[in-house]
């Protein structure tokens, strides 16, 4: 019974991730793109939950859905009016995007074949704050620092973009 529920919920989560990702890429309305991205990120959070990492799953929702998606929406609302017709798709850009995404896909595919996987249930159940803190500053320190670097780059980009002010550009 509970195995059946778990299987069904797993496929629901995978469906949310994939459908969300498709909407995020394919929809013509930029607000729908963002909502698709949010759905996809919630799906990824569900995958983390399925991998026995509730902490990471909730952080995913808190940071990516709660903060980053919202920030993107905010940027959209401050950008050009949405009632104007969107420019037609540039086929060259589509090919370039498909090529880049394909490369990443092949790389990740090869990576999954190389990795030795540990079943989620065999890993630690200790999710106390102390353990998480130790993990973040020892085993996962590179990932942790890389994320901070990414945020720093995003912040610098925002400052550079905003420096001209509304009159500029």
């Amino acid at each position: 019974m509970s195995l059946l529920i778990a299987t069904i919920s797993f496929y629901l989560v995978v469906a949310a991730t994939v459908v969300g990702a498709v909407i995020a890429v394919a929809a013509r309305n930029i607000f729908h793109n963002v909502l698709g991205l949010a759905l996809s990120l919630i799906g990824v959070a569900g995958l983390f939950l399925y991998l026995n990492s509730p902490f990471v799953a909730l952080m995913q929702i808190l940071i990516y859905v709660g903060a980053i998606t919202i920030a993107i929406c905010f940027a959209i609302m401050l950008s050009q009016p949405l009632y104007l017709p969107a420019p037609p798709r540039n086929p060259l850009k589509i090919q370039g995007a498909a090529f880049g995404a394909g490369l990443v896909f092949i790389f990740l595919g090869l990576l999954t074949r190389q990795t030795l996987w540990t079943p989620a249930a065999e890993r630690v159940h200790d999710w106390s704050i102390t353990t998480i803190g130790h993990y973040l500053l020892t085993q996962y320190v590179v990932i942790f620092e890389l994320i901070s670097l990414l945020l720093l780059v995003a912040m610098l980009g925002a400052i550079v973009t905003a420096r001209g002010g509304r009159g500029g550009a």
């Binding site: 949010a38 902490f55 909730l58 952080m59 929702i61 808190l62 859905v65 709660g66 903060a67 998606t69 919202i70 929406c73």
Partner: peptide, 12 residues
């Protein structure tokens, strides 16, 4: 974390 992260969805 559960309460806080799901509260963030309200904004969305």
């Amino acid at each position: 974390l559960l309460i806080l992260s799901f509260a963030a969805l309200t904004v969305l």
